[in-house]
Write a protein that binds this DNA or RNA. Sequence first.
RNA 1: GGGCCCGUGGCUCAGCAUGGAUAGAGCGACGGCCUUCUAAGCCGUAGGUCGCGGGUUCAAAUCCCGCCGGGUCCGCCA
Length: 546
Amino acid sequence: MVVMFQLFKRDVMRCLNVDERFVKESDHADLACTIAFKIAKEEGKNPIDVANELVERLEPMGYVGKIEVVNGYINFFASEEFLEDTINTIIDTDENYGYLGLRGEVLIEHTSANPDGPLHVGHMRNAIIGDTLARIFRKAGFNVKTHYYVNDMGRQIAIAVLGYRMFGLDESKKPDHAVVEAYVRANEEIERNEELEREVEKLMIEYENFKDEVVRDFRFVVEKALEGIRRTLEELNVRHDEYVWESEFLRNGYVERVLKMLEERGLIKKERAWFIEMDEKPVVLRRENGTTLYVTRDLAYHLWKNENFERFVNVLGSDHKLYGRQLSKILEMLNLKTPEIVFFEFVSLPEGSMSTRRGKFVSADELIERVYEEAKKIVEGREMENKEEIAKAVAIGAIRFDFVKVAPEKPMVFDWTKALDFERQTASYIQYAHARCCSILRKAVKMGMPDLDFKPELCTKVERDLVMHLSKFPYTIERVVKDLKPNYMAEYLLNLANRFNEFYREHRVLDESGEIRMHRLAIVDAVRIVLRNGLELLGIEALEKM
RNA sequence: GGGCCCGUGGCUCAGCAUGGAUAGAGCGACGGCCUUCUAAGCCGUAGGUCGCGGGUUCAAAUCCCGCCGGGUCCGCCA
């Protein structure tokens, strides 16, 4: 477990004896300390004098190298030893660089789109955030399981089943698209004929009572939808360890258990329906007709999570915020752990919000297909092998990066012209930097097995900055895990690719000889490793040639 | 009506955690760079009242209050 940048930061804090609040990243130094401003204020002195005084009686220790005072800031630069240890650690630990040694059982539940049709671009945002978090948590050391929670008991599933019974499924279509067709048609029928409402309600009651042929039809329709959804997710390099059906919690007794727990604490009010009084609005747990609600099953699911995991993370659309708060509040009433929830804002279309019910959405399949076609056009004009695979990797990378780079709480507007514009794709920029590293190393090997030998005293300013940035990779993972913001990693990699290109422009590698050559090859190899590890965390293939 | 989120160059976004030294990218625009390790790249130029107003502070894009604009939630739906 090596966390280079944090070690340096810790040394800075120790040698000044200040806490983390006063030590910050800065453009002017590797780390800058602002404590002098605070002391100056308290003691009515000049910050510059205070800073100078502090520095005078300061013993550099560990990885702390040069220290200078500028305008009251105390600027710290890492030592040559730090740079050397960073590069050597990266090369030695290789694919494990980024591992933080954190421990614990973590469940990440994400995507969980209703199985009434294909994934649309909003669900993609959920899947990509969730999958990226899962990858980063694993890298940090956690034992991670991912769940797709299947809402097989919802009203819309009953409608889809009704559609299936009335019209069947179009076998020529991808199964999730066939399901949504039946679902949309059934909705249209219901609008025309109110009688069908009762049909839907009946289906729901019968399913909840496990009536055989109803269960069979629900299972059939849900499996069909999931089959299609799973295929789409596979294209995106998103994999769930398990698909958990909510009806399962009715069968296995957890629903009953959680209701009993609530009852014993006197929390449930029973009138015609059963409900819990809450500040914002009451939560109904059992309908007048005796059936349970989504929240009831979800409470049971979270009771189960409590028994099996130390931490659980849910990725949910921000329209579920009130729901999430209430769920957590009820769990707290039972002295149970609450989920950590990542809320993401909506992906809307230029013409407005999406709706599965009205069949108004951009499906993930369509987006993938069209971006892929666009990537193929670009690859066509180039001399290379495996054009199809490269186009695929570039297309999926472009899509994943586009979604993950935006902070979850920012609303997104999905725009076809932008999605298909490869000039603005930033994933391929990172993939390209990685391919460049590989190319240099490949050639070096061809010229005779090279020795890699980093010498900090040979570092130029550009090289030094690049190495410092490499040291922050584990630190970035730590921040993602702490804040649940996978966009930090996207930002980090973009920045790294940028710095590498600067290095590439200003320095030759293979044309050099002797220790400079070995020194630069070590840097290139270290950059290659971090780019590759980072792309892996984003679920983007690190191409060696493109 | 109340709650929550967002508002940063023409466009898409980063930065807000922990206030700090010239607010960063990409696209678009304009000009340049392939006889040198991959031009999916690089360099340069133009372009910003960080939604508005107030407050706290030596210091505010960042913290607090109010307002405006957009989104979303407020079901015996999921």
